[in-house]
């Protein structure tokens, strides 16, 4: 059991591809908070977020054999899956009228889950801290449209309509936010 806890993500995915439920369970424990948090922040309700998280992990279980560690990390892969699944759910539910607006995490780093001594985990926590700081450094009027685009999958025109802003303003703010994030994060690499 201890060896599973110390195994790398790539190794756990390989074991998962062979039907190892224990390895899959360890991956779930590692990423359940991240996956569920993305889904919950996108959808705004617990039931839908749970269904999306279930779908994302089920997809991991079913497609583990096709995972290519050369293309992306397990974490990145899972984040992409849960994001697209969340956006699909939003589009099917047509919840634009609800106008749920997601947010970025402003919590202190002490609240992060899954403390671990593993080098990979420490590095992962460091990356998360850097990304959080980069987002926190954005002007407030850029954070909101960026969150709506990332978590909800809204288009420029949808965001403009919801926020009551000219579409050109939304385009400018999202473009500026992304450029600033790219510069900030590339400096940290």
């Amino acid at each position: 059991m201890d060896s599973y806890q110390k195994a790398t993500d790539d190794h756990l995915v390989r074991l998962t591809a062979q039907g190892d439920q224990e390895a899959f369970g360890v991956l779930y424990e590692r990423y359940k908070v991240l996956v569920y948090s993305i889904a919950f922040n996108a959808l705004g309700d617990r039931s839908s977020a749970e269904n999306v998280a279930l779908d994302a992990f089920t997809q991991l279980w079913q497609n583990a054999a096709g995972f290519n560690p050369g293309k992306a990390s397990v974490k990145t892969w899972l984040m992409a899956i849960v994001r697209y699944r969340s956006i699909d759910t939003i589009r099917k539910q047509r919840k634009e009228s609800i106008r749920f607006i997601p947010s970025w995490d402003a919590d202190a780093l002490d609240s992060l889950p899954d403390p671990s001594d593993m080098e990979d985990e420490v590095q992962a926590r460091d990356i998360r801290r850097q990304v959080k700081e980069a987002v926190a450094g954005l002007p407030d009027d850029q954070k909101q449209p960026l969150a709506m685009a990332y978590f909800r999958g809204y288009s420029h025109s949808q965001i403009a309509k919801i926020l009551g802003l000219p579409i050109g303003t939304v385009k400018t703010r999202i473009r500026a936010a992304m450029r600033q994030l790219r510069e900030t994060l590339s400096e940290l690499e």
Binding site: Q21, V33, I38, E50, T58, Y150, L181
Partner: peptide, 26 residues
């Protein structure tokens, strides 16, 4: 950049029974 943005979702733990539902499903 987009690949990393999900890391900043506000921390929200799932309910404990979610794992049971997942394992039952698979």
């Amino acid at each position: 950049v987009v690949d990393q943005l999900g890391l900043t979702a506000p921390y929200e733990p799932p309910r404990l029974e979610l794992k049971n539902r997942l394992m039952n499903r698979i």
